[in-house]
């Protein structure tokens, strides 16, 4: 009996075009045996949440370098809750100032990974958070 496969949406939100980080994390999650739904650049919170619902994903990895994280990320969490999908794990990767990290976590983000984080750490986090949720 095959077990449940972890499915993760990896998305670039908002108006920045730097997707190397997102691609690296997508690849690392794949190599850890997960199915990664990669949706490309310039996604809105609505698009990300709708994708997550249709794909029945367990987690969302949001990559953001534009500085708009305090608007966009909480909106994703709000929309997940509105859609009765509050159990989806949300983690963020990008250039997030220290003060904002706490605020994002308060808003419901599971973890924030800043530049230089080893991918292994992020992978382990997703594995643990998904199996706990």
């Amino acid at each position: 009996m095959p077990e449940e496969t972890t499915r993760v949406v990896v998305a670039k939100v908002g108006l920045d075009g730097h997707d190397r980080g997102a691609k690296i994390i997508a690849r690392a999650l794949r190599d850890a045996g997960m199915e990664v739904i990669y949706t490309g650049l310039h996604q809105t919170p609505d698009q990300i949440v709708e994708t997550t619902i249709q794909e029945d994903a367990n987690a969302i990895g949001v990559s953001i370098l534009s500085g708009a994280h305090m608007t966009l990320v909480p909106r994703i969490i709000e929309l997940l809750e509105e859609n009765d999908a509050g159990d989806v794990v949300v983690f963020v990767g990008g250039t997030i100032p220290k003060d904002d990290i706490d605020k994002l976590k308060e808003a419901g983000v599971g973890e924030v990974f800043t530049p230089g984080t080893p991918t292994k750490k992020a992978v382990e986090y997703v594995q643990e958070a998904v199996s706990a949720s």
């Binding site: 190599d31 990664v36 990669y38 949706t39 490309g40």
Partner: peptide, 10 residues
Amino acid sequence: TKGAILGDRI
């Protein structure tokens, strides 16, 4: 690894 990158949505 059985993992996959599913990119058709792009």
